[in-house]
Design a protein around this nucleic acid. Structure first.
Length: 310
DNA sequence: TGCGATTGCTCACTTACATCA
DNA sequence: GGTGATGTAAGTGAGCAATCG
């Protein structure tokens, strides 16, 4: 409520705008099985990295029940979920370490595996660990299961166990987004709330994007340095050419040019556009006549000096 | 068919807490 | 043990598209 929203978020994935054609290949493996298709995305436009995945946005809910609007509801919890990332995992059975709390949530049939309002602030998770070291999955589950009891107080933070994080990480490598079925199954497997799985993926995507942005920035930086070096080299080359030209003109016999013939064309360079042109063309007046007197070699002050004086 | 309301998803940004040096 | 830095789980508000009436 009192939180200020600082600016509007970037256009869907257009915020980077790096323009180097780098693409935001986030290193997400795109080899999702064909039968693993996310629900048609209703939200923001599909991010590019999502398109890297094997998902093609096909309908997933064709066989599941629908809510009163005809929108597909979650599958029944007894449905068999075929998910590669859950291979060998019985999603209806809690991991060995998590006994009591699992039964608390139990494999009962739930509409969404997500209590009403779970998608909205459900913050407070009781911190049962309270000690250093990764809390066990059981702790997490306990926190997840009785978080209604701890509501209201200060927000406690749950740290996922290494095992939980590893499973989430593996899943993320396969798909960086989850459909509701996958989310629910994963949550059940890890003894977390679907909301927690959702948040983890959300944060993980953000981290991935941030990392990619850093990589892109580094690339841009190097590109800029290269261009700067090249620019410097070209400047030097130009100076040398000018010097050579002046030396040649000075050494040439005077009678070749005669009294009225202007010296050889002088090169001038615009500091802003960096274009080099002959003085005869750049300084021609409206009538098109050639300038009466020689044009200075550098009619403009150095760009840096211009900026500093401004 | 067009339109507003609703819903559910994602995102960017932020906060609060846990952990580490 | 206190402290600042860092990592990350979670809260918040907004945008978008699908869907419905």
């Amino acid at each position: 409520m009192e939180m200020m929203v600082h600016g509007r978020r970037d256009e869907q994935y257009g915020g980077l705008g790096l323009g180097l054609g780098l693409g935001l290949s986030l290193g997400v493996a795109g080899g999702a099985a064909d039968d693993e298709q996310p629900p048609p995305r209703r939200g923001a436009a599909p991010p590019p990295q999502q398109q890297l995945c094997g998902w093609n946005g096909g309908g997933l809910f064709s066989s599941s029940s629908s809510d009163h609007r005809g929108r597909s509801a979650m599958m029944a919890c007894h449905d068999v979920i075929e998910m590669p990332f859950l291979r060998g995992i019985d999603v209806n059975r809690a991991p060995a370490a998590e006994t009591t709390t699992t039964t608390a949530r139990g494999p009962s049939c739930r509409e969404e595996d997500e209590e009403p309002g779970a998608s909205s602030p459900n913050s407070t998770l009781s911190s049962l660990s309270g000690k250093r070291g990764a809390p066990s999955a059981a702790t997490a589950a306990a926190a997840a299961s009785d978080d209604e009891d701890s509501g209201g107080g200060s927000r406690k933070k749950l740290r996922l166990s290494k095992d939980q994080a590893a499973v989430l990480e593996d899943t993320f490598k396969e798909h960086n987004t989850l459909n509701p079925k996958q989310k629910a199954a994963l949550a059940r497997q890890l003894n977390l709330k679907p909301r927690q799985v959702e948040v983890w993926f959300q944060n993980r995507r953000a981290r991935t994007k941030l990392k990619q942005t850093e990589v892109d920035c580094e690339l841009l930086k190097r590109c800029c340095e290269t261009l700067t070096d090249e620019n410097r080299r070209l400047h030097r080359e130009l100076q040398e050419l000018r010097a050579l030209k002046l030396a040649t003109a000075a050494a040439a016999p005077h009678h070749l040019y005669g009294a009225r013939v202007p010296p050889p064309t002088t090169l001038t360079m615009c500091p802003s556009c960096e274009r080099v042109a002959s003085a005869a063309t750049t300084t021609r007046n409206n009538s098109g006549a050639a300038p009466a007197r020689p044009v200075p070699t550098r009619p403009w002050p150095p760009a840096a000096a211009q900026r500093s004086s401004a």
